[in-house]
Simulated scan of single mutants.
Amino acid sequence: MKLKLGKSFAVLSALAASSAAFGQDATTVVSTNPGLVAVGSALAIGLAALGGTLGQGRAADAALSGIARNPTAADKVFTPMIIALALIEFQAIMGFIIAFLWYNK
């Protein structure tokens, strides 16, 4: 019960904190503090890279443990794993592209 309450509190506090950030106009932030755009772009690239590597690690771990438990299923596991890794990599690249577009704006 305490764990669910703690997680729900964390989600609600993150939602409450993000509403103030989305309430501002983007041109106001750029014109008053261009350094914050650079910090936001750097955070976007870093979080995209971190999330991509964690996702790829978990996908590879699950695929390899599945193949280790059942070696005959290697052909059935390999193709979906490659597709999942490609989608995870695409999300990381999209984070880089969005951060690059923010920085050049």
Rank of each mutant, 00 (worst) to 15 (best):
P80A: 04
T28A: 07
K4G: 12
I97N: 00
F22W: 08
G51Y: 01
R58V: 13
A59T: 04
A86L: 14
T79W: 12
Q24N: 11
E89L: 11
I93F: 02
G46D: 04
T53M: 05
F90W: 07
M1Q: 12
A10T: 06
V37Q: 02
L85A: 03
V11H: 14
P71R: 04
G57T: 01
A99V: 01
A49V: 02
N33H: 11
A44I: 02
T72S: 15
A84H: 00
I88P: 00
S19G: 13
S65E: 07
L87W: 05
L101C: 15
T32M: 09
L36I: 14
N33P: 00
A74H: 12
A21F: 15
G23N: 13
I45M: 03
A59Y: 04
I97G: 03
L47E: 13
G66D: 07
V30L: 13
G51A: 01
S65G: 09
G95P: 00
A74F: 11
Q24H: 11
A20L: 09
G52R: 00
F100T: 14
A49L: 11
T28G: 07
A38R: 10
A26Y: 02
L5C: 08
A74Q: 02
I98G: 02
K105N: 15
Q91P: 08
M81V: 10
K7R: 15
D75M: 15
L85H: 05
N104A: 04
S65A: 10
G52I: 01
L50G: 05
M1V: 07
N33M: 06
A48P: 00
M94E: 13
L43F: 08
P34E: 04
T28I: 06
A38V: 15
S18A: 14
L12Q: 06
S31C: 09
F9W: 11
S18M: 13
A20Q: 09
P71C: 02
V29H: 00
K4Q: 15
A99F: 02
A10I: 10
L12D: 10
A73L: 02
P34D: 02
G6L: 08
S18W: 03
R69L: 06
I93D: 03
F22E: 13
S31P: 15
I88H: 02
L50C: 12
G6S: 10
A59N: 03
K76L: 14
L36C: 06
S19K: 12
I67P: 06
Y103P: 02
L3P: 05
D75Y: 09
S65H: 09
S19V: 14
Q91G: 12
T72H: 08
I45L: 13
A16L: 07
I98T: 02
L85S: 01
L47H: 12
F96L: 15
A86V: 13
A49E: 11
M1P: 08
V30G: 12
F100P: 04
M1E: 13
A99S: 03
D25P: 04
A17K: 03
V39P: 05
A60L: 10
A21I: 12
V11Y: 08
A92G: 05
A14W: 05
F22C: 13
K4D: 15
W102A: 14
K2A: 13
K2L: 07
G6A: 11
A44S: 06
L12K: 12
A49M: 10
L85D: 06
F96C: 05
G55V: 00
P34Q: 07
I98F: 02
A16K: 01
